[in-house]
Amino acid sequence: MMLYLRLFWEFFKTGLFAVGGGMATLPFLSAMADKTGWFTQQQLADMIAVGESTPGPIGVNMATYVGFTTAGIPGSVIATLGLVTPSIIVILIIARVLESFRQNKYVDAAFYGLRPCSVGLIAAAGLMVVKISLFHIDAWGGGAGWWTQFFNWKALALAAVLLVLTRYVKKTKKLHPIVFILCSALVGVVFKF
């Protein structure tokens, strides 16, 4: 029982102080490993790998994984609830305040500035994914003909096909994004990405 309470409390603190998305939980989890001994830094590295290779928000995946390794199935549920409880409380308060101030001209003006900011942040995050998935950054400028190594040709070809299918082909561009994700996974396995 004590262990469950501690799990909830540790993840509650992580959820309360990790601002800026899933990867922001990482320093907190690293500190948690040192403090509690529930898992090692090496296990944490494995958890990141699993968290990134399964569906769902990475922060939640990591909490579930840590909870499970520490205290089995109840642990995974409790750690996840601990992580999301502070967000839910904070956002519910903000949502309520926003509702009453939505028509306020300063709030409206602030959101006018925030929208291009969100798009900019998403575009930058997208560029990071482009960097790691379409190119071999390590090969940049190294040795003769480095540029043949620099481009991940298979990935670029897949990206080009997907771009055409999602933007220009009338029959396919209305399909649900998950269709493209699943087809890509299959292509990845077949062509050994």
Partner: peptide
């Protein structure tokens, strides 16, 4: 800019 996982 609020605490927690953005998706949540």
């Amino acid at each position: 800019c609020t605490p927690g996982v953005i998706a949540v």
